[in-house]
Design a binder for these strands. Sequence first.
DNA 1: TCGTGTTATAACCAAATCGTTATAACAGCC
DNA 2: GGCTGTTATAACGATTTGGTTATAACACGA
Lengths: 101, 101
Amino acid sequence: MNALADYFKVFSEPNRLTVLETLRPGPLNVTAVVERTGLSQALVSKHLKLLTIAGVVRRRPEGSLVFYEVIDKGVFQLMGQARKLMLASRRQQLDALAAIL
Amino acid sequence: MNALADYFKVFSEPNRLTVLETLRPGPLNVTAVVERTGLSQALVSKHLKLLTIAGVVRRRPEGSLVFYEVIDKGVFQLMGQARKLMLASRRQQLDALAAIL
DNA sequence: TCGTGTTATAACCAAATCGTTATAACAGCC
DNA sequence: GGCTGTTATAACGATTTGGTTATAACACGA
């Protein structure tokens, strides 16, 4: 239970999700991610490290650059399903509200 | 992106997942959840409140008891998929380790 | 109304988390 | 070697979060 919670925690941070989304089309090195996200370099590095430790992303040094890429694109399916559930629960809540008013 | 992260955050806490799992078979009132989880009553109440706000769970007062039930059992599918991905990434990491040693 | 069982909340502490700034570590090139 | 560009990390402050304890709020029955 604990391990699963930790896994979910990986996706529970907006900037981290942004970084991950940036890597969706394909591998990028750190500065490329920095440019695309507008986040600070230190912060991007931190998030990428976390994603690596979580096994979501793979680190591949190439010369003086370091590329990162998503290991299993199934994570995006997970995100999609989560988004769907989230939207459904929102609708449900609005309906509940409407039933009261 | 932010909303999605918040949704994931709901599932990023071990005790909260335990509470949710307890509700899997069907509706339970608070004390029933307390008994089954071994968590303190105040803590269970807190987590249930969060789950309610997140729209994962519905609150239904019945006399002096308050029952909670999972609105969309699809959340368990989400958890299943997450667990699967988690295990896969673990395997992958072990393989990477084995390749080095 | 008083007491009891149930649930919610407030106040508080400890720990975790996120971001920034500054700097280290590293690779390649002159 | 020294310089530059790239990436990682350490140190710090601010905020959030999870848990406990104590108590409030609520429904019900004697």
